[in-house]
Amino acid sequence: MIFAGSNGPGSSQHSPGQQKIMLAHGGGGRLMHQLIDDLFITILVDPEYDAKHDAAICTAGGAKLAFTTDSFVVDPLFFPGGDIGSLAVWGTVNDLAMCGARPLYLSVGFIIEEGFAIEQLQRIVRSMRAAADRAGARIVTGDTKVVEFGKGHGVFINTAGIGRIDHGLEINPARIAPGDVIIVNGDIGRHGIAVMASREGLSFEPPITSDLAPLAAPVMALIEAGVNIHCLRDLTRGGLATALVELAQASGRELCINEREIPVSNGVRAACEILGFDPLYVANEGRFTAFLPPDDLDTALATLRAVDAEPHVIGAVSDAGSPLVTVKTLMGTERVVDMLSGEQLPRIC
């Protein structure tokens, strides 16, 4: 069945043929996972590969390669700290990096709406070039389509990327082990709030800029420093909470985080208070979480600081329990962290 659950709206009264895709199916939450699991993975993906990983690991001519793709539909196209172009390049670079792969080649596909200003397209393309250069990746092929006015939102971009894995580490949720420490490479939620604020016309002083950044350099630095990385995951839609819940489910481990240790900037905190958001679920584009054996923690923290990251230890993997995420609250109690069912919306209640 495409959408799990039985008696909800649109399922008891209507046949599945009448169900429609909603925005929440792309929101990174539970609905999106149902769609991916029940439709795409079941029908499309070769069972040999783990399609829920950030990238597929393939071999060709003796080389171990990572291969991934991602599409970008951000609104607005330009936001504080980036634009759809840099996002499209680094989003794919980061998916490769999360497999421990050094990004090599990228493809770019544009779907452009009739009437879109060429000057804006030029800005986006220049930004892509600069982003690729900074990440050490080369854009080698592409495609262009134009759709009628009203059938797109300015421009949509798809990128795909190939990276090479030249180390023996297996970076995979299956290696998450009891006692592992969980770190993040910086404060969370700035991308989601920056994009939302420029869409809603909120102003910040000092301005909140997206955390958008290429993550290949910090990951390569960790690997070169000999850190025995067990697992990596970039925090994108759905935020830290969703990434951790996915990893808890994939690894079968209980992940325990401490609310007090989760880095959130003052601006993001205030925006979340006003809009009724939980920063744990706000989107990021330059943040990742890493799972490491405790013996490697000091090396990892020093290595990340040397590449200008501000890493924080946010929790640890429990040696017991069930596959879920628990958070120790500010009041010292413990609660479960769940995925959201769709995107967070400003609320008054």
Partner: peptide, 10 residues
């Protein structure tokens, strides 16, 4: 935003 996900009859 609170209300848009809330189901009515169907």
């Amino acid at each position: 935003g609170d209300m848009v996900r809330v189901p009515g009859t169907s």
